[in-house]
Write a protein that binds this DNA or RNA. Structure first.
Lengths: 344, 344
DNA sequence: CAGAACTCTGAGAGCGGTTACTCATCTTCT
DNA sequence: AGAAGATGAGTAACCGCTCTCAGAGTTCTG
């Protein structure tokens, strides 16, 4: 009653077809709701003749069970969600894709929520998304540990991507940034570079900190390191390139591929040849950097592994099993055309 | 009862915290469930002292209302969904972003479903997504008209992006591909090009057909047109470029920016200079094509307008009002470095 | 042929909320 | 002081579906 009035008011002009409910189908077919439910769920212990009648009625009324009601009754939704900080970053597409496919095999669907890098909204968004489904894959590299820790009970079961949460058993899939950086640096050193610039990402970002740490460690009297504040986007990389000319460096390590690409573009505009005058490396190996001019040398993160891995763990959690242990994927050095011997 | 057994079985080992329900909060606070509900919804007609007690109990139990139950009772979810064929295409990011923001103003959240170009799954995915929320923004350029028409009753209220559906009143936001193509062609003609190749997109795609039509119409004894089957991705564009050398064309119109970018890359590898030996244009103006080498001349689609427009219409539909009339946004010619005078 | 063992189907109790109604209790006005 | 009006909280129905349980009808057994 309560809702009837509201819903009919709400749908005064729209909602051409008041949706059929299980009750209506039952009445139409002359059976009980239980039977309709059984038929709709493929329960085989229904007399074929009855089942047929129900199917007919359902068809005729255009009936389809309400997922919301179903979720409430079942206590599960058949959905998992993934929260990403920025859909614009192609990095996530690989994960999303893998996750969608892996989940699909178990008849789960994936919904994506994008926090648009809105730090403030992230906790709310995560909690809300989580409660509407059965599990969450969370990628929130900027959220402070304490906050995440506090949220943990509301988010479970969930899996972290790209960060770890100390003191908890939350499964997490991380990337070995340090190893990636080491490989890149080793590569550059072997080409004779001795003074490098690092185009730093957002300093709230855990992954940026990891890179910085690895760089400083590698630098240790092997080479000189100049850190330049930059950001995480094309535009950031593009804008920062002008500063590079004064730094007297021969190679640039960018926070990620997006930045590297922006920088590459600007260097080209400035008439600085890559790689003969300046080498540049990115990180991630997002899909199109193999097509840049020149193609970008980068640390290739096997994104396609992350999706299935995340699903496997989430699935375990949702079934009350112990998830496999955390993995830290190791990027593979992908040498392309943007790096070359240091100019004399 | 029914579920209790199932749910406790399911969560045997996980689910550390059985979620508090409204009933538990009510008992703890010594009030009725109705009162708890009122407090949680900020109903002011509750005695402050009682309200406080309820809030305390809720806090203590870590209670948060179940969105699923709430949705069922209210008959609305506070969510809209958008279905995209391929999240990997940056085209959609603009729409998504605008939609998220517009919806947020009315306290609605956006969830994204990605069909991964899986034509087969699309109808199911769309229907399912739709039924879990209050409205849908659908971008399914490849779905046949008949199928979409058939789905219409189940999807309402919804808004179409990038296509129209004849014979219905479904609001749709489209892009004037013909105008975009005309502008691009005019630009190329003014540079002296007389023999163009078109790198065709998927031929199931409505937008590809629109482009082809516009091209043929423009061609009319003004220039020669060679149509080459290609696709919609970087890789497609990259792969097709080798064929171009034999075609004796001086300019290339790509299905979209992704293809153009792939082609550009391959041409560079082949040592064919753009634009002095070959001009190339894309379509969409996705974020990074201004950073390619050379930057891509393209038809810039104002994606940021689509999100808010879509929301406005969806909102109207959801409230039983008549949505504003359809709009067809007109791309703006964005001349950059990838086009130049036709070589002699 | 009675009773056991099955099969089907329907009744009804949830799932976790919301809200129309009802009923005290407290004001306020005549 | 007594009646009408407010106000605040509780009761119970309902959202649409699932599932246990029990009863009716069948088929087997001995």
């Amino acid at each position: 009653m309560s809702n009837r009035s509201q819903s009919s008011e709400r749908t005064r002009a729209s909602a051409p077809a008041e949706r059929a409910t299980i009750g209506l189908v039952a009445k139409t077919a002359g059976v009980s709701r239980a039977t309709v439910s059984r038929v709709m769920n493929g329960n085989p212990r229904v007399a074929p003749e009855l089942a047929q009648r129900v199917r007919l009625a359902a068809e005729e009324l255009g009936y389809a069970p309400s997922p919301v009601a179903r979720s409430l009754a079942l206590g599960r939704t058949g959905i998992i969600a993934m929260l990403v900080p920025d859909l614009g970053n192609p990095m996530f597409q690989g994960v999303l894709h893998g996750l969608t496919d892996a989940a699909a095999k178990e008849n789960y669907r994936l919904l994506v929520a994008d926090s648009n890098e809105n730090l403030h909204e992230e906790p709310v968004l995560a909690t809300e998304a989580r409660r509407r489904c059965d599990g969450l894959v969370l990628c929130a590299p900027r959220m402070p540990d304490e906050q995440l820790l506090e949220l943990t009970p509301q988010l479970e079961p969930f899996v972290l991507i790209n960060r770890e949460l100390p003191e908890t058993s939350t499964p997490s899939l991380t990337i070995d940034f340090a190893a990636g950086i080491r490989d890149l640096v080793t590569h550059l050193l072997s080409l004779g570079h001795r003074r490098l610039a690092y185009l730093a990402g957002p300093d709230t970002s855990a992954s940026n900190r990891a890179r910085v740490r690895a760089l400083h460690k590698a630098a240790q009297d092997t080479f000189e390191l100049v850190e330049v504040a930059c950001g995480a986007t094309f535009a950031d990389g593009h804008a920062v390139a002008d500063q590079l000319t004064d730094l007297n460096v021969t190679a640039v390590v960018a926070y990620n591929d997006l930045v590297a690409f922006g920088t590459l573009s600007r260097l080209h505009e400035l008439g600085i040849n890559v790689p003969s005058q300046m080498s540049i490396v990115g990180f991630d190996d997002i899909p199109f950097v193999r097509y840049t001019t020149p193609p970008l040398t980068t640390a290739s993160v096997p994104m396609d592994q992350l999706g299935p891995q995340a699903w496997q763990r989430l699935w375990a959690l949702m079934n009350g099993e112990a998830p496999e242990k955390n993995v830290r994927v190791r990027p593979r050095l992908e040498v392309r055309g943007s790096t070359g011997p240091a100019p004399r």
